[in-house]
Design a protein around this nucleic acid. Structure first.
Lengths: 216, 216, 216, 216
DNA sequence: GATGAATGAGTATTCATTCAT
DNA sequence: TATGAATGAATACTCATTCAT
C-alpha cells in the first residue's frame, strides 16, 4: 500500500522530473555521503518529509536515480551490437565510442556519479553496480572480439581475454577524457573542444587497428 | 611567529612518522570529507589540539601529506627515463608499467588517495596536483615517443600528441587495474593474482606494439 | 456538523472492530506518545485521513478506546458484589482476585494500557481515569469491610479506611503480578505458571485473614 | 583515553551536579523516549555537543544517571539488615518501610524514573535493572522471614516464598503510595500528609502481623 | 466519505575548529 | 607546547496533522 515509489510515481510529470534532476545534480556534484538532503529540498522548495515519503531514506533516493540510469546505460550497447553486426570490427568499436559520448552528453550527471563511484568505496550499490557494468562491457566486447578473429579482421594469435581487457581500458579511458573535457563544472582537467575529441575517437581506433610500432 | 609545520617538524622522528602514517591511512580509507580528524587523534592517542597546532586545519593535514607524496611520485619516472635511455621503446614502456606497480605496492595509501581524488572535485589541491601529474606524465612520454619515431621504432606517420594520449590511457588504466586487484580492502573488483597482471603488462605492451588488427 | 465519532459509528461492524483492535494493540504495546498513528493505519490498510476523520486526533483515538474500556472495567466488580453478598468476607476477596485475573485474560491490552498509565503522567485522561478506578475500588471494598466488621468476620478494632487501603494494595499488586506473568511479550519479569498463581490467590487471602505473626 | 565518563567526571562539582540534576529531572518527567536531549541542554545553557562528549549518546546519559542510583538503592537495605539484626521481625519491616520513604524523599526523581520503568518495556537497562531490584528485595526479605520463623515470631506453617511475595507486594505498594502522595508534580493521585502515611506504615505492619480476620 | 500527498518542527547525533589552562 | 572541554551548525530522519481531490 505504501511502496515508497508509488507516491513519487504519481507526481505530476513536471515536478517529478524537477525532483529527479535536483537530486541527481546533488549526487553528481558531491558524491553520496557529502550530498545533502537538506540542500536538495531547499533547492526544490518542498518539505523535507516529502522527499522521505517518496524514497524512504537517502539511500532510497540514490538507488532510485541510479536504478533508472543503469537501464539507460545498457540499451545503447545492445543497439550498437544489433545495428552494426556484420560490419567491420573497428568501425563497430568507433561507433561504440561515439555512442558512449552521446550517452555522456545526454546524461552528464549520471556519468559523473559513475566516475565518483569508481574509487569511492562507500557508495551504496557500488559493488553490484560496478560488476554489472563490467559484465555488460565484457558481454558486449567478447563476441565482437571472437567474431573479429573468426572473420580474419583480428590476428588469430590474440588472447581474447587480454584483448577485451585492452579494448575496455582504452575505450573506458577515452570516455573519461571526453567527460572530463565536456562536463560543466568541476571535473575539467583537459581542455578540449568537441571536434578534437571526435578526431581522437578515430585516432584511438586507428591505434587499436595498427598499433604504434613499425614492425607490424 | 611559527609556521604551523615548524612545530610538527620538531617532533621526534618516530612520533612524526606515526602521525603521517595514521593520517595518510585515514584519507586513503575515507577520502577527504569523510575522513575524520577525531578518528586520527583517537588512533594516535594524542590531543586534538595538537594536530591543529601542527597543521592549522584539516586541509593543512591533507596538504602536508600529499605534498610529500608528489615528490615520491616524480622520482621513479625520472629514474626510468635515465636508466633506460637508448633502449628499445616498448621495453621502456614495459619497464615503466612495472615501475608503476612497484610504486603502488610501496605506497598503496598514496595511490588510493590519488584514485579517490581523480573524480572527487572538492579535494583540496586536486587541480594543481592532477595537472602536475598530467604534466609529469606528458613530460615523460613525449620525449619517448619523439625518440621512438626518430629511431624508427614507431611509425613516422603518428600524431605524437595522440600517441601520448593513447599510451597514457593504456598505462594509467593498467595501473588502476593493478591497484584495484592488489590493494587490500574495499577496491577489489577484479580478481587477479600477481603473475596474471605481470603477464598483462607484457600483453599490453605487445598490443601497443602490434595493434590488434591483421592488416598491419 | 458531525461529531467526529459519528462517522466511525456508522462503519460496518467488522471494520469498526478491526480499527479498535489495532489501535488498542498499538497503545498497549507502545504507550501513548510512543504509539504511532502511522503504524496503525499501515496495519489496517486504511488512509491516514480516515482515522483522523473518525477521531479528530491521536488523543481522540485513545479517548475513544479507553472510554469503552472503563465500562468493561466496572461491570465485573458490580457482579461480584451482587452475586457474593452475604457470603464470607475472605471468600469474596478471593473471588474478586480471580475475577480480576479473568478480566485481565479477556482484555490483556486494556490492562497493559492501564499499567503503563499508572506512572506516565502525560497520558491523556490519566487523572480522571485513575481516580475513577480508585473510587470504584473504594466503593467496592468499603462496604465489604464495613459488612465484614459488622458481621464479626473482621476485627472490630480495624480502621476501615486503612483496611481498605491494605486490601486495595495487596489485591492490585496481586493482579499486576498475574498480568506480568501471563501477558505475552515484554512485561515478563516473574516466571510463573497458572496454577502457582491461583495457589497464590488463596495464600494471599489467607495472609489477609490470619496475618503472618504467631502472637495473633 | 576518551571514556565518555572521564570528561564528565573532571567537571567542576557544581556544574557536574547541575547537569545530573537537569538530566535526571528530564527523565523523571518524561520517561526515556519522550525525554529530549534538546530540552536538557537548553535548560543547562550548554552546547549540545558537550552533553554527547560527556555520555556518548542519550542512552549513555540515562545509564550514567541510573547506574549511580542503583548503588544508592542497595546501601540502605544492607544497613537495615545489619543494624536491626536480632530485633523483632515486624519492627524490622516497619524500619524498612520508613527507610524506603527516606530514600524516596532524598531521591524523588530516581524513584519516579523507577516507577515509569516498571511498565514501560522499552526503557534501556530495564530488564537488568528490574531483576536486580527483585533480587535485592528477595535477598533482603528471605533471611528475615527464615529467621522470623526460626525465632517463633512467624507462624511455622508459612510457605516462606509466599510470605516473601506477600511482604514484597505490600511494602512495594506502600512505597508507591508514599511517592505518589509526596512527589511534586505530576504523579499526585492520593492526597495525604506525611503523618498519615507514617501511621499507615504502622498500620500496614500491624496488618501483616495480625491479619484482618477475627478467627485467628 | 475516503484518500494520501504535503508539511515542518521535532528527534538524536557528528565533527572541525577554538581557546583557556 | 600540549591539552581536551566547549561549541554550534550541520547531518539524516520521524510523525501528527491538514486539506485538496
Amino acid at each position: 500500500m505504501d511502496l515508497p515509489q508509488k507516491t513519487f510515481e504519481n507526481l505530476p510529470d513536471k515536478k517529478r522530473e524537477r525532483v529527479l534532476a535536483e537530486a541527481t545534480l546533488e549526487f553528481a556534484e558531491h558524491g553520496y555521503h557529502q550530498a545533502s538532503v537538506n540542500r536538495i529540498v531547499e533547492r526544490l522548495g518542498i518539505a523535507k518529509g516529502s522527499l522521505f515519503k517518496y524514497f524512504g531514506n537517502k539511500q532510497g533516493i540514490f538507488e532510485y536515480i541510479f536504478g533508472h540510469a543503469v537501464n539507460q546505460f545498457k540499451k545503447p550497447l545492445k543497439d550498437i551490437r544489433n545495428t552494426t553486426s556484420g560490419k567491420d570490427f573497428f568501425e563497430r568499436i568507433e561507433k561504440s565510442l561515439l555512442a558512449g559520448c552521446t550517452f555522456i552528453t545526454a546524461h552528464p550527471h549520471i556519468y559523473r556519479i559513475y566516475l565518483k563511484m569508481l574509487f569511492q568505496e562507500d557508495f551504496p550499490l557500488r559493488n553490484t553496480f560496478l560488476s554489472e557494468v563490467r559484465q555488460a562491457s565484457t558481454k558486449f566486447l567478447r563476441p565482437l572480439v571472437d567474431q573479429g578473429i573468426e572473420s580474419g579482421q583480428l590476428r588469430n594469435d590474440l588472447d581474447p581475454e587480454m584483448a577485451v581487457f585492452h579494448l575496455d581500458s582504452v575505450m573506458d579511458r577515452f570516455l573519461q577524457s571526453y567527460a572530463v573535457a565536456h562536463l560543466d563544472g568541476g571535473i575539467g582537467l583537459y581542455e578540449a573542444d568537441h571536434e578534437v575529441l571526435e578526431n581522437k575517437a578515430r585516432a584511438v581506433t586507428d591505434f587499436l587497428r595498427h598499433g604504434l610500432g613499425t614492425t607490424s
